[in-house]
Nucleic acid binder design. Structure first.
Lengths: 333, 333
DNA sequence: TTGTACGCGTTATCAT
DNA sequence: ATGATAACGCGTACAA
């Protein structure tokens, strides 16, 4: 079904049909009604490819994420999907498994498709082939979860937040606080959180315990277990994210350590499940869905203006220290 | 950058440029090289909208899911994204919040966009405005998680699986097994699982306890808690999904009931986190990512053939009873 | 207010 | 093996 047939059916020109769809007020009510009836009867809808070709835009937003297995990103994508739909945009997501090559491929494919803008989370915004390609292309984009002065970002203050959680634990009386992290070099967030940890420890004049770095999340439980079995284990484990914290709790349990009686465990991310766990998880909650929504909002605002978000338009959203059951005063007090 | 400029740069016709991209073997090596060089130099890539308009296909698969907040669906989408990328397709997902109107809107928008095929999970495949629209359109599609003899589906045998989990609990010695479910009328899966529960109870000659139906997941903990406070609570709670089971464990904890010592709790879905919880969750594990992958596979197979999946091509994937720490012999034995 | 006609960038048919 | 050219379906000057 094409615009031609509708025009013939309604006894008008194709231009008039086009106008009744795109500028209804530019056509008289009488003919508008006739066209709308004809369109409805023939079950006509404008062909998106033809329109895209003609207008040079697609009302589609490309999305590049590490993985949908981590609820942080799927919750964010939910927010992106919601807000995009509200604003009349479709989304086209790609996952990268945290690899830079996949990031670049996704960006290129999206560019060739002709998305109007991109939302992405990259491994390292300061060294990213994907972003290099993107900047040259002049396509509007915004980074989420990343933070950099060189790009428009929507995120929380990872470093500050992590310092806060160390303070909270120190306030409780913890002296031996160890950080559990995935590969720090896999993402800028991991590094920022580690720096926040270091700052917190320094500010509280606490002993700097070696980081427990877990290269593969699937071996997290064993890795943490073996650390916990050492002579004097930490009284608190601050984990770089909620998924890791869940593993830490499991490791503690394997070592016959009760959380939080024998050891406190904290997370980071605020995934929805965290508050329903038993014990519920003390964590830094990021507004994941909101991050997605705001990213779309920021992007589409510029799309409407024909401009593109710049580093200065970055949004730093509030995080929240969710104190729950997985942390408490250390046992020896 | 257009095909015209590349043609001029390479000193050939546009047809030849097009051919070197689409049918490289139809062009002599010499000119092919010249064209490729020109294209590379001008950083040319075929315009997708123009190609879509001309070829009448988009190499895009529409995806319609209830929500990305439930890891079941985000894990599935991860599988869809992976396999689609492998097969050279993009995906365009929409979320519906379990509402039929949103399902229909998503399908319509996707149809107008011109997706080559659709993967969707609907509330009820036997009564679905979205599917009515879709069938008329002749666009290939496959349902996931749904099951119906009238549509191509990729799922597991929900009913059979749920019967199995009741058997397992009965074998352990449980006599008072209660089911915890969300709104049964919200999805066909919920109904199939409930039927499986009923069958299991009947086959084991057990007492039929009233179902604990939780209208809003956010109030699940309170709802289950109040049930557990009754004089003789069940010794086992079989939950309609993992998210509900996590709430049930929390409710038990609030009631000073230890899992599994005082009460067993089981889930359904096999979300990744379930096995890392403490206690780890006994559940019926569906291969969520695999369901996504196989759906894409089934769909693209037909796309290549120019045909469409029919009900007979439905795939019933194996589920697995994951016995973990949240279930055990009842206390009174 | 309405219509005519061109061009968006491809692919595919038909010649050569 | 290569080239000229006609669609694909739409939006929008420009003219009426």
């Amino acid at each position: 079904m094409t615009i031609q047939k509708v025009a013939k059916e309604a006894g008008v020109s194709v231009a008039t049909v086009s106008r009744t769809f795109n500028y209804p007020d530019q056509v008289s009510e009488k003919t508008r009604l006739r066209v709308q009836e004809a369109a409805a009867q023939l079950n006509y809808f404008p062909n998106a490819s033809a329109r895209n070709l003609r207008t040079q835009h697609t009302r589609t937003i490309g999305v590049v994420l590490p993985t949908l297995i981590n609820p942080v990103f799927s919750e964010c994508l939910q927010g992106i999907a919601e807000m995009a739909a509200e604003q009349g945009y479709s989304i086209m997501p790609f996952t990268t498994s945290y690899t830079q090559s996949a990031e670049q491929e996704a960006v290129e494919q999206l560019m060739h498709f002709g998305v109007d803008g991109l939302i992405l989370v990259v491994s390292d915004p300061h060294n990213s082939p994907a972003l290099d390609v993107l900047r040259k292309s002049k396509i509007p984009y915004v980074l989420t979860y990343n933070w950099s002065e060189k790009h428009p970002c929507v995120s929380v203050d990872n470093q500050q937040a992590f310092t806060e959680i160390v303070h909270y634990l120190a306030q409780l009386g913890h002296k031996k606080i160890a950080m559990v992290s995935g590969l720090r070099h896999a993402s800028d967030r991991a590094q920022q959180r580690y720096q926040g940890f270091l700052n917190g420890i320094a500010q509280q004049n606490l002993e700097v315990l070696p980081i427990i770095e877990v290269p593969f999340i699937d071996h997290a439980v064993e890795a943490i277990t073996s650390e916990l079995k050492k002579s004097t284990p930490p009284t608190a484990l601050v984990c770089s994210n909620d998924l890791m914290a869940i593993r830490a709790i499991r490791a503690a349990s394997i070592c016959q350590l009760q959380v939080p009686k024998d050891i406190s465990v904290t997370g980071f991310d605020g995934i929805r499940l965290a508050q329903d766990l038993t014990p519920s998880l003390t964590t830094i909650a990021q507004p994941n869905t909101e991050i997605g929504r705001r990213s779309v909002e920021l992007l589409t605002k510029h799309l409407r203006l024909g401009s593109r978000p710049c580093a200065a338009s970055s949004l730093l959203l509030d995080h929240q220290l969710h104190i729950a059951e997985s942390s408490a005063v250390p046992a020896f007090l």
